[in-house]
Design a protein around this nucleic acid. Structure first.
Length: 589
RNA sequence: GGGGUGGUAGUUCAGUUUGGUUAGAACGCCGGCCUGUCACGCCGGAGGUCGCGGGUUCGAGCCCCGUCCACCCCGCCA
């Protein structure tokens, strides 16, 4: 027997007992006649004492211990002498007097220190991930992720969901992200694609009568990486039959509430707040607003229309928008600061950034175009008080929202006004289509199987040719779940009738042959009694990242990839032998 | 594809503005001392392809050109 307790599990109840512990030497403090080591395993840290009075032999051996040696000890648990307790450590009331010590393995000096707060470059962390993961906060992230998936599995199981696996070697889909391709040896010139999501298969499971499906599953998208995006990531994928939007939302709210309360012990109020896509864009300039602070975008058109500022007036005349946000405490910024901020806004696509400081009256290069009354009205609408700066963007609506939405985030971060509590939000009523100017056609905003709202269905099935502007106003039964400004999930009610699905594909400009080729198997399945169904997928990595209070999903993925999508631990991707390529009928260019 | 930040000892960084003797610090590492430490302490020591390649120069960590890697962002991510 190596051990009968975890290092972090010994406590006052063990005093007087002999325990056997195993683990890594986290730190050693050699006082000559008395040696202490902090012994670490997954459960925590225990202080081991090696004393000449217990065993000269053990004491001598302990002298040779170094960081990250793997050892097994036996010894008596004792209360620490009064005044030497360490209340920062869970086991800090007690210590173990080693009567036996076995060195199970030695360790070379480490490439970096394992302290929680040690700053280590990502390059080293990824190359020596097994060392990085030994750090308590990383081990905690693994634990947190496990507890989260376990809680979700249990919760969905209790609701009658079946966990079903879908293929990893599947078919390339025409829309969406770039696919990872896998060559088929048995079918020269043909390729599988790794799934971007199990979308079609889960809908087909509904056609099979599975009723409630879920899967915690890897998905793959060959796109550029970000702090919150990896090429392979994990979805909690779900699909349900005979449900509407509210049914799906209720399940997700139940999951998140249970996870937060069960894993983090944080109380969560349901139902979550909901915003329509339109309101989210109007008020926050984004479809994934961070609700932990205000600084909302305000429409200024009616006020600035009364001014003589030609820039604003021209924008309004051309159908553009003039909106503003309140830059808290930004009146103290210098002219140069404001120039930098303007440059920043321009880099985001704005033509410029107009500002009016509230500072013993108003101060601005454009002040002369506004009467005092108009300035007062604008400050009032924005809630701008002494010390604040009003920031204006005038442009096409999309630019105004994008620029102000980002500035809003920047300002909140700089001023530290982001609330401490996590804020869940549903964004609903997404547009059904999105205009793709580059390809000169409409695209599905969510995906081509998303159901329009009921009014939309009526319109589409009225069998009249729809004008582009009508198509653009159609909304869908799609929903996103947003947490602290991150999209942590999304889904929709699907189309379950062949006729409507065909209409949709038509509107998307996907030919019948193409549709048949790409996802004919779904269209077929809809013919044979497909039930109404809908679902959702949660981004597990992002959810756990936010639960862990981390800034990047790499911290909650055991073996993440770099920004160039390589694995520094295994050195993937790598070249392969010519013979392998030959078997796969592939010739490199 | 584009913009930005960084790369100097095992690690984290300073040194680059203004080119000039032997490239520093802290932590870690090695040796010694130490019986109540917990980031133990004290004494001593070792440790460098300044990412890589080229150029300018009497002389390059520092200037110029190229390139690689990591990170952040834009595009992209239904």
């Amino acid at each position: 027997m190596y051990r009968n307790k975890g290092c972090g599990e010994i406590n006052e109840g063990d005093i007087g007992k002999e325990v056997a512990l195993c683990g890594w030497v986290y730190r050693y403090r050699d006082h000559g006649g008395l040696i202490f080591t902090d012994l670490r395993d997954r459960t925590g840290i225990a202080q081991i004492v090696y004393s000449l009075e217990i065993s000269e032999k053990v004491h001598a051996l302990a002298h040779s211990l170094r960081a990250e040696f793997v050892i097994a000890i036996k010894g008596n648990v004792c209360r620490r002498p009064e005044g030497t307790e360490n209340l920062d450590v869970k086991t800090g009331i007690v210590e173990v007097y080693a009567s036996e010590l076995k060195i199970l393995n030695t360790s070379e000096p480490l490439p970096f220190m394992l302290e929680n707060d040690a700053i280590v470059s990502d390059t080293l962390r990824f190359k020596y991930r097994y060392l990085d993961l030994r750090r308590p906060f990383m081990m905690n992230n693994l634990l947190l992720r496990h507890q989260t998936t376990k809680t979700i599995r249990d919760y969905l199981d209790a609701l009658g969901f079946l966990e079903i696996e879908t293929p990893m070697l599947t078919k390339s889909t025409p829309e969406g992200a770039r696919d990872y391709l896998v060559p088929s040896r048995l079918n020269p010139g043909s390729f599988y694609a790794l799934p971007q999501s199990p979308q079609l298969f889960k809908q087909i499971l509904m056609c099979a009568g599975v009723d409630k499906y879920f899967q915690i599953v890897k998905c793959f998208r060959d796109e550029d990486l970000r702090a919150d995006r990896q090429p392979e990531f994990t979805q909690v994928d779900m699909e349900m039959s005979f449900v509407g939007v509210d049914d799906v939302i209720t399940v997700v709210e139940g999951i998140l509430k249970t996870v937060y309360e069960g894993v983090l012990n944080v109380k969560v109020e349901t139902p979550f707040e909901r915003l329509t896509y339109k309101d989210a864009m109007e008020r926050f300039g984004t479809d994934k607003p961070d609700m932990r602070f205000g600084l909302e975008l305000k429409d200024m058109a009616d006020i600035v229309a009364q001014s003589s500022f030609k820039v604003f007036l021209d924008v309004l005349k051309n159908g553009g928008r003039v909106k503003a946000i309140c830059g808290k405490d930004m009146a103290a910024l210098s002219r140069k600061d404001m120039d930098n901020l303007t440059e920043h806004a321009q880099s985001l696509g704005a033509k410029g950034l107009a500002w009016i400081k509230v500072k013993d009256g108003f101060e601005s290069p454009i002040k002369k175009f506004f009467t005092d009354e108009l300035l007062r009205q604008m400050a009032e609408r924005l809630g701008a008080v002494q010390g604040d700066t009003m920031l204006f963007v005038a442009d096409k609506e999309a630019v105004v929202h994008d620029v102000l939405g980002r500035l809003r985030l920047d300002i909140a971060k700089t001023n530290g006004i982001i609330g401490a509590d996590d804020r869940f939000l549903w964004v609903v009523d997404f547009p059904l289509f999105e205009w793709n100017a580059a390809d000169d056609r409409f695209e599905a905003m969510h995906h081509p199987f998303t159901s329009p709202t009921d009014e939309g269905i009526d319109l589409i099935q009225a069998n009249k040719a729809l004008a582009d502007k009508d198509i653009a106003t159609l909304t869908s039964k799609a929903y996103d779940i947003v947490l602290n400004g991150y999209e942590i999930g999304g889904g929709s009610i699907r189309i379950h009738q062949t006729t409507l699905q065909k209409k949709m594909l038509e509107l998307l400009g996907i030919s019948e042959t193409d549709a048949e080729e790409k996802f004919g198997f779904l269209l077929d399945a809809l013919k044979y009694g497909a039930p109404p169904h809908g679902g959702v997928a949660l981004g597990l990595d992002r959810l756990v990242m936010l639960m862990a209070g981390s800034e990047t999903i790499r911290d909650v993925i055991a073996f993440p990839k770099t920004q160039k999508a390589s694995c520094l631990l295994s050195n993937a991707p790598s070249q392969v032998q010519d013979s392998q390529l030959k078997e796969l009928h592939i010739k490199l260019r």
